[in-house]
Write a protein that binds this DNA or RNA. Structure first.
Length: 586
RNA sequence: CGGGGCGUAGCGCAGCCUGGUAGCGCAUCUGCUUUGGGAGCAGAGGGCCGGAGGUUCAAAUCCUCUCGCCCCGACCA
């Protein structure tokens, strides 16, 4: 491609709205153009990168028996009512009426349609298992888009769905997807961290997220320093700590704590560690008040709490709701709770005694609250947030570390959530009607492109891995009107194209500085310069974008030596369908 | 949805406090010179100052409302 004809231009100034590196460079180098909040046009460079990512995804999906389909974005709301998600999902699901007044939605994911498809297509056990996938636009009216392509309202997702005769077959298939996902991310130049995750609105029995570990990531992850345990903090557990309770339970005692409302203030005022306090956190869960009791030094994990309560919405209770139930914010007591207030006690309360808690009147706390002496708890739940330095729940001596990451892919064992709701069955060998079991597997394509940039850049621009670079070679001609150099560069461009090397040819009438800076910014893995200097040295200069190593290729050697140099730059992890290739679908 | 910030030329910004002819740099176009790290000179084009009301002789500037964008939080496969 000649840059003089390319529909794209780079920017000299840093775009002001960009906060993350990938957002900055994708805008500055002319890969994307914003249209509205979280909605972007993909320009030629981005389209080329995404096409390469998609090609990798297709290879890996096909290698585990996937068959590509394409499902509609515009869907009748009926299907979503059938699974209940029409009612359960908030306004991020775009709803509208068509001209005939029928209720419609724009697909934020495709479980409903694919499950409907399955019930039309599955006849008997001979038709199982199978896996279909698509690369299709998803529409999610996110409450807050951010980070360039990291969180957007319209994006491309590879979503795959597998259908099985039973859970055991899904269990057998799931590791193949796991492996294919690992291959995909590695081939794009990212070593993923796989974490145990919360299935969220998707439902199902278990899921794994494939994360790109980077400080700018929006998810917090825990990782054991000794064993392989890793989890999204939403779903992370900790080892039960060693704990030495006080030798005896002391009588309850009321103490004045004027103006001390926070755990930190109360603990300091009474000279006790925060772990000797009982923290009361109030939530408005689908409109009703929930009293959460947790040891003062821990934080509530709201994802876990929502799962336990089985509610759709959870937010901190507003003061009015508290007072309506006779509770006093800052001094609330778990004792003598009104009957209509549900209490959820975290298991951290089992790891202590003689707690300090609110007295349920302003400026007073109670010392020496003991469970179950003073407070009967039907059941302790795990609703605490894992923290740095906590013990690993899987091994004896491991310590958890917190890292940040970007969620690139998510795989779910959905089970029968959708096939139950939509009644998808098959006849087995004994002519018994059986429920179909599902898995589903997603990857955000644009987000993956962004993550590749987050991980592969320097202060001058992007350093694309060869596997997904918009072009392999960036040919820079510094002719300055010199006919010999123009001819020489033109000839080389022709040779490279003939040799099948994807080349971006900077034939513009620009100064060397402009061309070199653009080359660094755009980030093709190999830069080739033709200039009076290079010709004097015997040919063309080859410079690796990442390695910055420079070599001269003679004019006679032509494209062959460039191909060889390119091949030497990066060892591709060419592991299509590796490891688990056999014994899969199809 | 709460909190904060910002909307002035394609991009980055100044001007606003203290009302009085809308500016700067880059980019674009023309000409000449220049060509190994964002060139020089000369010239040119480009604006409903986000929008709507209001105050005023006069509004980019002051007031009210509104829309949009960004950030933090809530939310989120």
């Amino acid at each position: 491609m000649r840059m003089s004809e390319l529909f794209c231009h780079t920017y000299r100034e840093e775009p002001s709205e960009a906060q993350t590196e990938s957002h900055k460079y994708l805008l500055k180098a002319g890969f994307i153009q914003p249209l509205a909040a979280g909605i972007y046009t993909y320009l030629p460079f981005a389209v080329r990168v995404m096409a390469k990512i998609q090609a990798i995804i297709r290879e890996e999906m096909n290698a585990i028996g996937g068959q590509e389909i394409l499902m509609p974005v515009m869907q009748p709301a009926e299907l979503w009512m059938e699974t209940g998600r029409y009612q359960n999902i908030g306004s991020e699901l775009v709803r509208f009426k068509d001209r005939a007044g029928r209720q419609m939605v724009l697909a934020m994911t495709h479980e409903e349609v694919v499950t409907d498809l399955a019930r039309r297509m599955i006849m008997g056990h001979r038709g199982l298992p199978f896996m279909t996938y698509q690369i299709q636009v998803k529409i999610r009216d996110e409450p807050r888009s951010r980070g360039g392509l990291i969180r957007v309202r319209e994006f491309h997702m590879k979503d795959a769905y597998s259908f099985h005769r039973d859970a055991a077959d899904l269990d057998r298939y799931y590791p193949h997807v796991y492996q294919a996902y690992t291959n995909i991310f590695q081939r794009c130049g990212i070593e993923p961290l796989v974490v145990e995750a919360d299935p969220g609105m998707m439902g199902g029995s278990g899921s794994h997220e494939f994360m790109c570990v980077i400080d700018s990531g929006e998810d917090t992850l825990v990782k054991c320093n000794r064993c392989g345990y890793a989890a999204n903090i939403e779903n992370a557990f900790i080892r039960v700590p060693e704990f030495e309770p006080d030798p005896e339970e002391l009588p309850i005692e009321e103490v004045a704590t004027p103006g001390r409302e926070s755990i930190a203030d109360v603990a300091a005022f009474l000279s006790v560690p925060e772990s000797k306090t009982l923290k009361a956190v109030f939530y408005n869960a689908d409109g009703s008040l929930v009293f959460v009791a947790i040891r003062g030094d821990f934080e509530v994990n709201e994802t876990k709490l929502m799962n336990i309560l089985g509610v759709k919405s959870l937010e901190l209770a507003e003061p009015e709701l508290l007072s309506r139930h006779g509770m006093v914010a800052g001094y609330a007591s778990p004792l003598d709770l009104p009957a209509d207030v549900r209490i959820v006690a975290d298991r951290s309360l089992e790891w202590g005694n003689n707690f300090v808690a609110g007295a349920n009147k302003p400026d007073y706390h109670l010392r020496n609250i003991n469970i179950p002496r003073d407070l009967q708890v039907a059941r302790f739940e795990d609703i605490l947030t894992a923290r740095e330095g906590a013990g690993c729940p899987r091994c004896d001596r491991g310590i958890l570390k917190l890292v940040r990451g970007i969620e690139l892919g998510h795989i779910f064992k959905l089970g029968t959530k959708y096939t139950d709701a939509m009644d998808v069955t098959y006849l087995d060998e004994d002519r018994r009607r059986q429920r179909v079991v599902m898995g589903c597997y997603g990857i955000g394509v644009g987000r993956l492109m962004s993550a590749v940039v987050e991980v592969n850049h320097d202060e001058n621009g992007i350093c694309w891995p060869r596997s997904v670079a918009p072009f392999e070679a960036h040919l820079v001609s510094l002719s300055g009107g010199n006919r010999e150099i123009d001819d020489s560069a033109d000839a080389l461009y022709g040779e490279l194209r003939a040799a099948g090397i994807e080349t971006l040819y900077d034939d513009r009438d620009e100064s060397p500085g402009v061309k070199f800076n653009d080359a660094d910014l755009i980030g093709c893995p190999l830069r080739i310069t033709v200039s009076t200097r290079s010709l004097r040295q015997g040919g063309y200069e080859m410079k690796g974008r990442r390695s910055k190593s420079v070599e001269i290729a003679s004019r006679e050697q032509g494209a062959g030596v460039i191909q060889a140099y390119l091949d030497s730059l990066e060892i591709l992890t060419d592991n299509v369908g590796s490891v688990l290739k056999h014994d899969t679908l199809g």
